[in-house]
């Protein structure tokens, strides 16, 4: 019935949908990158025996939680650039496909950011959704990396080697994500209770 009036310049509509590259999202991205890189560097030492260059990473929950809480931009870039930085600064290896795979691990949980209601995040429904998304994200992300490793012959030559690389990495990432990401989300929601516009 009523026609929507264009808002006057300088006016901020509180209910308008937040842009993907809002200042909050950008800061969340920067914090996610720094956090993932900083916490992954010490954990790079726990490498799985028998598998080349695959590390047990409890910190994989960070891009997952950032994707779930702050949306796709923060999730993707904290995984992608965070992985580049942590690899470069700890042992100097550069694998573009593993970086992209880590980006996917952060991007996929952002489904939860759009689908799950904010008020449900700390409830069983939201936590279960985040755990399931963490498992899916790990399988897709590591699957992408192992597949591209095989297709472009980066260090691997046989299907067996690709599977041998995929299974331990995907399983440990899925377990890590499914345990730690819901705890991170729950703790975040609890510690922001009572603060204005945090969710």
């Amino acid at each position: 019935m009523t026609e929507q009036k264009p808002s006057p310049p300088g006016h901020v509509d509180v209910f308008q949908r937040e842009s993907l590259f809002s200042t909050k999202n950008l800061v969340a991205t920067a914090v996610g990158i720094a956090l993932y890189a900083a916490l992954t560097i010490p954990f790079n030492v726990f490498t799985i025996p028998g598998v080349y260059d695959v590390a047990i990473r409890p910190t994989v929950a960070i891009p997952i939680a950032f994707g779930f809480i702050f949306g796709p931009v923060a999730g993707f870039f904290s995984g992608f650039i965070g992985n580049i930085l942590s690899d470069q600064l700890s042992f100097g290896a550069f694998f573009w496909n593993w970086d992209l795979g880590n980006g996917l691990i952060g991007l996929i949980p952002a489904i939860g950011f759009y689908v799950v209601k904010r008020t449900d995040w700390a409830k069983t429904k939201g936590l279960a959704a985040s755990a399931i998304l963490a498992v899916i994200a790990s399988i897709v992300g590591i699957g992408f990396s192992a597949l591209t490793d095989f297709i472009f012959q980066i260090g691997l030559t046989t299907v067996g080697a690709a599977v041998a690389e995929f299974i331990p990495a995907a399983v440990t990432d899925a377990i890590n994500g499914a345990i730690i990401a819901p705890i991170l989300i729950y703790t975040y929601v609890q510690s922001t209770a009572g603060r204005a516009r945090r969710l």
Partner: peptide, 18 residues
Amino acid sequence: PLIIPVSINAMLSVYEVA
């Protein structure tokens, strides 16, 4: 016990910095 405190502290600072 290592990951959660550091991450939550960092995540809570996002809105202040923004």
